[in-house]
């Protein structure tokens, strides 16, 4: 989402007030100058996005940001002003899970679960752009989401299962 007007935000009483679209709805965050989007999300109650390293290396903070999966821990919160952000909470719920989430459960790809929100965000984006990815494509797309529990074997399987589920869903429409 690119606006064609130059904008400027000033801090008031040490806080920036930013407006963004979060999980499809307008949201307003008060953020500290030193905050990153990850801190801001969690401080405002969006706990699904996790902090594993804070250096952009583990992917557990992956969120949708202006159309691509990006690392929330590397985005200064104030620069999220005007952005379109999607977190794991917006993907699906226990009552209405997204096929990708169902697939991760079915495949046995969830052990401790800490890396899973990031994995789901990345996998969902992959499948929306490459509906039938090869194993090599899956591995490449997920290479920024670290997991120490599963060895990735069942997670890659989960993406394949999700691809089938989504294909069935599309065919049914």
């Amino acid at each position: 989402m690119k606006k064609n007007k130059t904008e400027s935000l000033a801090a008031e009483k040490g806080l920036f007030v930013i407006s963004l679209t979060l999980n499809g709805r307008p949201a307003e965050f008060r953020v500290k100058p030193g905050d990153f989007l990850l801190d801001a999300l969690r401080a405002h109650g969006w706990k699904g996005t996790k902090k594993g390293c804070d250096t952009g290396d583990c992917g557990s903070c992956a969120v949708m940001f202006n159309g691509k999966p990006r690392l929330a821990c590397m985005i200064p919160a104030v620069t999220a002003h005007g952005a379109v952000v999607g977190t794991i909470e917006g993907v699906g719920t226990v009552d209405k899970p997204h096929p990708v989430q169902e697939a991760f459960v079915e495949a046995g790809a969830v052990q401790c679960g800490f890396c899973i929100p990031g994995m789901v965000i990345t996998s969902k984006h992959l499948l929306e752009n490459v509906p039938d990815p090869s194993e090599a494509q899956i591995k490449k797309a997920l290479d920024g989401n670290l997991c120490r529990c599963t060895g990735y074997v069942k997670q890659i399987e989960a993406v394949k299962i999700a691809s089938k589920k989504l294909r069935t869903k599309r065919a049914a429409k």
Binding site: R42, V94, V110
Partner: peptide, 23 residues
Amino acid sequence: QRVDKQDALGLACGHPVFADDMD
């Protein structure tokens, strides 16, 4: 049997169940 892990779906939905997820 290959039973689904009980907490798997909640975790896949980002439920706030880890130590730091509580305010």
